[in-house]
Design a protein around this nucleic acid. Structure first.
Lengths: 77, 77
DNA sequence: CAAGGATGTTGCAATATTGCTACATAGCAT
DNA sequence: ATGCTATGTAGCAATATTGCAACATCCTTG
């Protein structure tokens, strides 16, 4: 599928790289664990994409951390 | 924007209607609170769409319930 | 019977997300 | 230097998500 990662209103920040490194796994391993491409993980870590809910739930499960602790909304209040 | 709600691998179930009614608010009110269309809330409640992560986080915030308690992955294990 | 609110459903357009391929760099080992 | 791994970056195609308009039904309430 696909397109190129682009703009998108700068809506979510995440701590997945930090948590991933704490578990000592690579992007490729995390990608395999949740069933996506390693580039997709990269785009999400850099904040170029905010993931779908399913993907976010799977990542949270693998990292053993609740969704709200990993992803935080910006432009709050 | 748009297209029509379609297939999509049946991936997530949710309890947002239950929680919304418990708060006594309509779809329109929930939609206003999170900044989407009321039809969008309908599609999500019926499971025709799984929302984006941002929308899921906003809904969870409005309903005062963590994301994992509202949305559950299917086809687990 | 109006009139209105909440909801369901369909259609089309615009944008976001993902898969996948290909190429680049840097580091670390052999 | 050659290889391998991890990562960044770009493009294209396919699909998912959202906005929005128009219509419907079902329930109230006047």
């Amino acid at each position: 599928m696909g397109r190129k990662p682009k703009d998108q209103e700068e809506s979510v920040v995440n701590r997945i790289e930090e948590l991933r490194l704490a578990k000592g796994i690579s992007r490729q391993q995390l990608a395999d664990a949740v069933g996506v491409h390693y580039q997709t993980v990269g785009y999400i870590e850099r904040g170029e994409y905010s993931p779908s809910l399913v993907l976010a739930l799977q990542i949270a499960k693998v990292l053993g951390t609740p969704v709200e602790k990993i992803f935080k909304l910006e432009e709050e209040n």
